[in-house]
Each structure stands twice: as C-alpha cells, then as structure tokens.
Simulated scan of single mutants.
Amino acid sequence: MGSHRRTAHSRLPGLDRNTRATVLTVAVASAAAALAAVPADAAPKDTPADTKAEVDRLYEQAEQATEAFNKADERADKLRTELRTTQDEVARGQERINAMRRALGLLAGAQYRSGGIDPSLALMLSSDPDSYLDKAGTLDRISARHAGELTELRAAQRDLAQERAGARRKLAELDAVRKAVARHKRGVETKLARARQLLNSLPDADRAAYERSSRGGERPDLSGAGPASSGRAATALAAAQSALGKPYVWGANGPSAFDCSGLMQWSYARAGVALPRTSQAQRYAGRQVPLSQARPGDLVAYGADAHHIGIYAGNGQVIHAPYPGAPVRYDPVGMMPVSSVTRV
C-alpha cells in the first residue's frame, strides 16, 4: 500500500515546502488526467481485481520512490547548509591572508626605502611561497625575525586551499544529489499517473468501490488500548489523531497535508522530538520492540525496506497517511507485512 513523500521541489521561489508539495501534486494530477485520455480500445484487458492489484502495486512503488526522493532531498538540504558554511570559511580565510600580505607589504615597502628587501619578506609576499622555497633550497636564508610570520602565512594558505577543495567537492555532490532528486520525482509522478490511468479504466461501479475502500472507516474502538509508552508518545499520538482526514500529498510533512513519514515527523515534533525525515531512518529512531508488545505511540514500519510507516493507536490499529486520494486514517496494524516496531 501507500506512496509517500515530498514533492520534488526544485526549490520553487517564494513557496514553502507544503505549498511546493501541493503545487507539484496538482501537476501530477494533470499529468494523470492526460494519460487517462486514452482510446477506449487501449483500455487494459485485465479483470477489475487485477487492475486494483496493479494500482496497489504502483502505489507501493511510488511510496518507495517518494522515500528515495525524501532522502535525496534531505541530503541536498544538508549539503546546501554545509556549502554555505564552507564558502564563508573560504571568504574568511582569504581575507585573513589578504590582511597578512598587506601588513607584510607595508614592511617590505619600508625596507625597500631603507635599502633593500629581506629575502624572507620576498618569500612571504610570493604568490607561491612553497615554490619560492624550492628555488631557494633552504630555510636558512629566512631571518629569525620573520620565521613565525612566514609559518603562519603558509599554514593559512594551505588551510584555504583545503577549504576551496572541500567546497568544490560539496558542489559536485550537490549537483549529483539534485539529479537524483529529479530522477526520483519523475519516478513518483510516473507511478501515480499510471495508477490514476488504471483507476480511470475501471467501470464506474468498481472505481467507486475502490475509492470508497480507500477512505477507511470510522474511528475504531480504542477503549482498553492501554497507556502510551511515554508522555511524548501520547502527545505524538494525539497530534496524529488531530490530523485524521488531512490529505495525502507526497513530500508533505504538515500541517495541512502529509505523506507517511511526514506525518510521523510532524506528530513527534509536536512532542518536542525531532525524527528523521524518511521512514527508513525513523525505524531506527528508538528502541525496537516486538509487535506483540506494541503500545500507543510506537512507530510501525512496513515492508522489508521500511517504505511505509504509521503510529500505533492501540487495539490493533495504526494511524497513517496511506497514498494519494486516501486521507490520514486508521487501519489495522496488519494491513501490510510489519517489518519493525520502534519505541521513540
């Protein structure tokens, strides 16, 4: 079941994350509508049951692609922050070197006016001190008076070269991650568009029945569900309950729309807990316990790759954001194979 996560935002200017996610979801819907406009003789020949199973499979694949998108997008955010820091360090390092060279230039000018330049100053003012030293062949020519300044300048220049190399590496990685984000975005959109195309190929009655089933039922009986595992787990569960009925938007993490891991991240943030962005990382955000010992507020991950996740509500129920068209809702904890239960 399910698909989730963030709209590949390519950083639309002036829009926050949820707005970007909603805008791109509308784009996906438009693409789906276009794909749905196929000739009648091109409709799938499968039975309605086959079509529904294929739609479910496509939603699961879209969720896997969404998780990959979220992971790449999270890495891109981190790289942008690191790159800004590195660029600031490069600028500060260059200014430090410039200041040192200006001071040495003043000293060299004074020496020139008094009859010549100390070889150590010529070395320090060289654009390539190491090359100068290679030519000189020895440090013996450098006066003790300026040895400390030379050592400091050379160290600063080496540091600056390392910082610039680090910035180049981060730029290259950021470019690669941006391409991965775009690739995963296309994957999600393709799967969702195909799922919508298949749904539109169903007879009206079958399509209506599928969409009714995707809405979930009423609030289940949670009496006797037992206490949450902690105060923060209780707060997170209450936040998830407040999101019931909110739409699924891949890449969204609240407060007006969610994908599956976005709902978990938002719910636990209300309890002051910073969860990672992806369901794969969230499954390791605490202590894992057996399903038989699950308590309200625990995270329940699905699939061997943990591509889907929900929050345990008690009495065999979870709250989750299932897939596009299905709002945040309750479902049985065994709706898919459970891969882990995590107590945060």
Rank of each mutant, 00 (worst) to 15 (best):
A176H: 06
P324Q: 09
A301S: 15
A236W: 05
R84I: 03
A108W: 09
E218N: 14
A225K: 15
P324G: 01
S339R: 10
A31T: 09
P337G: 01
K52L: 09
D46S: 04
S126P: 00
R232Q: 02
V344G: 08
A240G: 15
G148Y: 06
S340L: 00
R96Q: 09
A122R: 07
V344C: 02
N18C: 11
E67L: 10
Q265N: 03
G314K: 11
A243E: 11
S10F: 15
Q87C: 02
L83A: 07
L12S: 12
V90W: 05
S30Y: 14
M264H: 07
P324I: 03
G105W: 10
S267H: 14
Q111T: 04
L263R: 15
I311N: 08
L160C: 06
K246Q: 09
R80Q: 10
V23M: 13
L104V: 06
G303Y: 03
S201K: 00
L199E: 15
L35W: 00
A33I: 01
A306I: 15
S3Q: 14
L125A: 01
W250K: 04
A103D: 07
L58P: 05
R164D: 01
Y132L: 12
R215N: 11
Q293M: 12
A233F: 02
R295H: 09
E218D: 13
D46T: 04
I117L: 03
D331Q: 01
V26L: 14
R84H: 07
L139C: 08
G334H: 12
L139A: 13
A42T: 04
S267M: 07
D16G: 10
G14K: 13
D16K: 13
S3M: 14
L199R: 11
A31F: 08
L299P: 02
A274G: 03
A228R: 14
T138H: 06
V177D: 01
